[in-house]
Amino acid sequence: MLLFPSQWVELLPVLEKTYGANKCYMFQNNVFPKDVVLPPPPFAKAAPSQELWKNVSGVNILDHLYQEPLTPELQYIQFKIIVNPRAVFSTSVHGVLKSQKGCVWVNRSIARMYHTRDKRLPELQPSQLLYDDRLLSYSAPLVETVNAVLRENGLLPAQDKL
C-alpha cells in the first residue's frame, strides 16, 4: 500500500519515482460539500476546535470530512495538475494539450485534491457521502500555519495577547 507524502516537498520525488520525471501529474477532484457538516464516526480523531476562527470568514475545511463518491462520469473531469513548465509545450484552462512525456493520473493512495465547495451532486443524501478523515492527519501543522497567517494579517490577536 502506498502512503501519502506528509508535505508538498515530499510529493514531487514520489511522483517522479512512481510515474517518471517531466510528466504532467493529474489529480482527481474530490468534492466535500461545504453545506454538509456531519459528526465524525465515533472512532475518528476529532478535528481541533478553533474558537479563534469564529469571526474569520470562509470555510474551515477541517469541518468537512464527507465527500461525494466518485462516479465514472465525473471521475476524470475538473482536475488539477502539476507540471514541469520546461516539459510542456501547450496548455489550456482545462489541462495540458501537448507535453514532452504526456500526462498521468495520480493514484488516490499517493495524493488527492480536496475541494470544499457547493455540491456537484445535489441529489445525494448525507448518508450517501463517504467519510474521509485523511485531512485530519494534516490538521496540527495546518492550524498552526493558518493561525500564523491570520495573525500576520491582523485577523487574530498576537499570541502574546491571548
Rank of each mutant, 00 (worst) to 15 (best):
M1T: 03
M1Y: 12
L2F: 13
L3Q: 12
P5T: 02
P5K: 00
W8E: 09
V9Y: 11
V9A: 14
E10H: 09
L11M: 07
L15Q: 05
L15N: 06
E16K: 11
K17E: 08
G20V: 03
A21N: 08
K23S: 01
Y25R: 02
Y25K: 01
M26R: 14
N29I: 10
N30S: 14
N30L: 09
N30T: 11
V31E: 05
V31L: 08
K34D: 11
K34V: 10
D35C: 08
D35I: 06
V37R: 10
L38Q: 14
P40M: 03
P41S: 11
P42F: 02
F43N: 15
A44K: 13
S49K: 15
S49T: 15
E51I: 14
E51H: 12
L52D: 12
V56C: 03
N60L: 00
H64G: 01
Q67Y: 00
F79V: 09
F79N: 08
F79C: 10
I81M: 05
I82K: 03
A87L: 09
F89R: 14
S90W: 12
S90V: 06
S90F: 12
S90P: 03
G95L: 06
V96N: 01
S99N: 08
Q100D: 09
Q100K: 15
G102T: 10
C103P: 02
V106G: 00
N107Q: 15
S109R: 14
I110S: 00
A111P: 04
R112V: 04
M113L: 11
H115L: 02
T116E: 06
K119T: 08
K119W: 03
L121A: 12
L121Y: 13
L121K: 13
P122H: 00
L129C: 01
Y131S: 06
Y131P: 04
D132S: 03
L136N: 09
L136V: 04
L136I: 12
Y138I: 07
Y138V: 01
S139L: 02
P141H: 05
P141S: 11
E144R: 13
T145H: 02
N147Q: 15
N147V: 06
V149E: 15
L150H: 02
E152T: 04
L155D: 06
L156R: 00
P157V: 11
A158H: 13
D160L: 08
D160T: 12
